[in-house]
Design a protein around this nucleic acid. Structure first.
Length: 449
RNA sequence: GUGGGUGUAGCUCAGGGGUAGAGCGCCGGACUGUGGCUCCGGAAGUCGCGGGUUCGAAACCCGUCACCCACCCCA
């Protein structure tokens, strides 16, 4: 045998076979439909960007995870990079907004469903190439935007069949307000947030240890833990009242209050919890931040927030913006485990296989296939005049619900043998009515396509 | 990046110093007008890779790589 190489796709990437693609497109179709109902318009941007476009937008950790593309030609050996694969869909959007500022409507609502790349270590529900489904609204600081986005996101999950998701909401300025009030120095606030983000995993004690390890003042630590500690299922109203006592007249607390109130009139009603330990790693967030999760998955299904300064990094003049991003693979991981994607979605390949009776009647089979295709069916023709048993076996393997047989007897009567592989029933049908017969039988069982 | 686990047929895995195995899948046949069920037959593996110990290594030791799980970080 010849020398073989690994045929596995590169680590953290996947091949998608037909069944996978149909499953993914089923989910993407619902996401797109819901986003469009909320008035978002599609956008696509290139897989790679000039490297300066991406660097410095995601924080230190993010910079390291950007896939960089070496300069081509004689510069290759220097290791210098001038391009990079996009790391998310938000920064390319900010670039597009800056580039086309005069052509876009006053409020620009766009959705974007495309792959992004991260030089991360792969894990469950985490890939190096994965799809994000983003929605963003550019051009206003109004809290109706946060409410509509959370509404759209919840609508997507409900339409997909999720009953048990929860929305966690927080605010970058509330976080820094609380840390300031507790007396944590500005230079230590990032460290403090990283530690607080683990609150739900390591508990109060764990966070206190982290604070100590990072050299944060013990008195400040105590005040911090007091204001960040929350009962498991604290209602938003109670969290807000607590925040108002610690940070009276604070505009970011008022902003959260408005968002919580407005969300009550969207499909996200009743699912929002203010989670003070939610920090979110990306450095471009400036206001409200949010995540959506289900208990079953360690990470989140998606996250987002307000980033009023990002467009300004391209334009020199700030334009407010807020958005949310779903991880398609994470949704699919959970939906697959819970069998939430109907089997019929994955299996729906062809409607009918036309068999070849013998070498002399191949043309007859091709003509029949053409007739059936004209009637709107998805038709495969068996390529060789094999034994019928093999042709049937192939039809089964392809999950074809019907097999058409152009036998001598049938042909003599102007009919075609039609076998329903699902029930095993076989009938002889007038050739002119074959397409209509198959379509009506499919409709009965599938509710149409 | 840190810790742990696992690498044996296309897939899932058994075998723990003495002849390379099972189930599923695949191919052929029983069944020259019919898939699934059944039965019969067959193909397919330098046991991840390199070195060491041994008369003898898939097995034991060292190294290395890959994958999985947890942590970190994230969608």
């Amino acid at each position: 045998m010849a020398v073989t190489q690994s045929t596995r796709p590169a680590s953290g990437t996947r091949d998608f076979l037909a069944d996978d693609i149909r499953r993914r497109e089923h989910v993407i179709g619902i996401v797109r439909d819901v986003y469009e109902r909320y008035g978002f318009e599609p956008l696509e941007t290139p897989a790679f960007e000039n490297i300066e476009t991406l660097l410095g937008k995601y924080g230190e950790e993010g910079n390291k995870l950007i896939f960089k593309i070496l300069k081509r030609g004689e510069h290759e050996h220097t290791g210098e990079a001038d391009l990079a694969l996009r790391y998310d869909l938000t920064v390319p959007l900010a670039r597009v907004v800056a580039q086309y500022q005069n052509e876009l409507p006053r409020f620009f609502k766009r959705y974007q469903i495309q792959p992004v790349w991260r030089a991360d270590r792969p894990a469950r529900g985490r890939f190096r190439e994965f799809y994000q489904c983003d929605v963003d609204v550019i051009g206003t600081t109004a809290p109706t935007v946060e409410a509509e986005i959370l509404g759209a996101v919840s609508d997507v999950l409900l339409r997909l069949g999720f009953e048990d998701f929860s929305v966690r909401l927080n605010h970058r300025l509330v976080l820094s307000g609380l840390l300031n009030a507790a007396g944590v120095w500005a230079s230590q606030q990032n460290d403090a947030l990283v530690a607080l983000d683990k609150l739900d995993k390591v508990g109060i004690e764990g966070v206190a240890n982290e604070f100590r390890a990072r050299g944060i003042d013990p008195a400040a630590t105590e005040r911090c833990l007091a204001s960040f500690h929350q009962p498991e299922s604290e209602r938003p109203e109670d969290t807000l009242q607590r925040l108002e006592r610690t940070l009276p007249q604070d505009s970011s607390v008022m902003n959260l209050r408005e968002i919580v109130a407005l969300v009550g009139d969207t499909p996200a009603a009743g699912r929002v919890r203010i989670d003070l330990s939610l920090a979110r790693g990306l450095s471009y967030y400036t206001g409200a931040i949010m995540e959506v999760s289900v208990a079953q998955l360690a990470g989140s299904l998606g996250g987002g927030g307000r980033y009023d300064g990002l467009v300004g990094m391209f334009l020199g003049r700030d334009i407010p913006a807020c958005g949310f991003s779903f991880g398609l693979e994470r949704i699919i991981v959970v939906m697959t485990e819970r069998s939430m994607i109907p089997d019929a979605v994955a299996r729906a390949g062809i409607d009918v296989l036309v068999t070849i009776w013998n070498h002399e009647t191949r043309d007859e089979a091709l003509r029949l296939a053409r007739e059936l295709r004209r009637s709107g069916l998805r038709v495969d023709v068996y390529p060789e005049a094999d034994r019928l048993a093999k042709q049937f076996k192939y039809a089964s393997a392809r999950n074809a619900p019907f097999v058409a047989i152009l036998g001598d007897d049938e042909r003599a009567r102007g009919e075609v043998g039609l076998k329903d592989l699902r029930s095993g029933e076989q009938a002889s049908v007038r050739r002119s009515e074959l397409g209509a017969t198959i379509r009506s039988r499919l409709q009965q069982t599938d509710g149409g396509r």
